[in-house]
Design a binder for these strands. Structure first.
Lengths: 161, 161
DNA sequence: ATTTCGGTCATACTTTCGGCCGATTTTGCC
DNA sequence: GGCAAAATCGGCCGAAAGTATGACCGAAAT
């Protein structure tokens, strides 16, 4: 495809080609002007004007080419539907972000299974008081007031299945 | 911190500073190399050069002044995990099998959202006692002892998301 | 060496929940 | 209208959950 080849070639070397062409055009123009106006007709002011125009254009081109664009960062929240996978993998990132300790996640899991505080305590071979302490930090970290809310929130954050 | 200030200043205005310094150096060089002679001999070229420089500067200034500021927008997508509850359909068969009434399923749903009995009562515009009654029948029908168990069980039976 | 942090435990208290009794009203249906 | 199921409401009491506070220990970090 000759057309497509030319197109990609054009896109690739656009700047260089343009620069070369305009350079040639300028040369020709200068030569022509020098011959006709400056050398023979002494239209000196016109020549100066052309020079001024040319270099003004050059300056504009330079400025537009070299000016650094302001960078504006926009953060877009993108919802990612979580696939219903058979094998649940806890969101380690979420756990780290929430600053949940291993033990707290453990308690959270048992809580979500419907165990009472006492049952959790028996399961983990620690006292009821400790469970309550863990619960407290869990509630604070998850920003909730009740165990049911904690379960709901933890599930939404994929900390527990 | 003076050093850091200088560094950031340098990075910011590197081009301008370099330009200024080299310009000064050139000036000095010209002067040192018997400026008068050079000037006298190449007065015309120098004049043209000055014009060119001047109007290049003018062009740059014009472009910077009049052109719309370039804004490069970077869109950063932040991933938000969302529970894919979009296609949840309650298992009507399970509900019928468990003999759950409409109201009971309703209460169950709010319970799973983490609401307290009082909050559920306020939401449904009924009294706390009624919620407790509903809870009782729910617990019996689901064969559980606690609301957390009820939630877990109902979720397993696909009665609630 | 001191601080920090996770984990442990305790006491005392308030609130909420659950269990169990009862009751009335509403709704849907034959 | 009569009936059954559903829905509503109340009280009581103990159990469980949650709040507040303080303490101890050991490992890790500083």
């Amino acid at each position: 495809m000759q057309v497509a080849d030319f197109k990609s070639f054009w896109i690739k070397y656009k700047d260089i080609l343009l620069y070369g062409c305009s350079m040639a055009a300028c040369m020709f123009l200068l030569n022509w002007m020098e011959l006709r106006f400056v050398v023979y007709d002494h239209a000196f002011e016109l020549f100066i004007g052309c020079i001024a125009l040319l270099f003004t254009a050059l300056g504009i081109w330079l400025a537009l080419k070299l000016s650094k664009p302001k960078v504006q960062t926009i953060i877009v929240e993108k919802e990612i539907p979580v696939l219903s996978t058979d094998h649940f993998v806890p969101d380690e990132a979420a756990i780290r972000r929430l600053d949940l300790s291993k033990r707290e996640v453990e308690v959270l899991g048992l809580m979500a299974k419907g165990l009472s505080n006492q049952e959790i305590a028996n399961t983990l071979f620690i006292s009821l008081s400790t469970i309550k302490t863990h619960n407290q930090s869990l509630f604070v970290k998850l920003d909730v007031k009740r165990r049911t809310q904690a379960i709901e929130r933890a599930r939404a954050l994929r900390v527990i299945p």
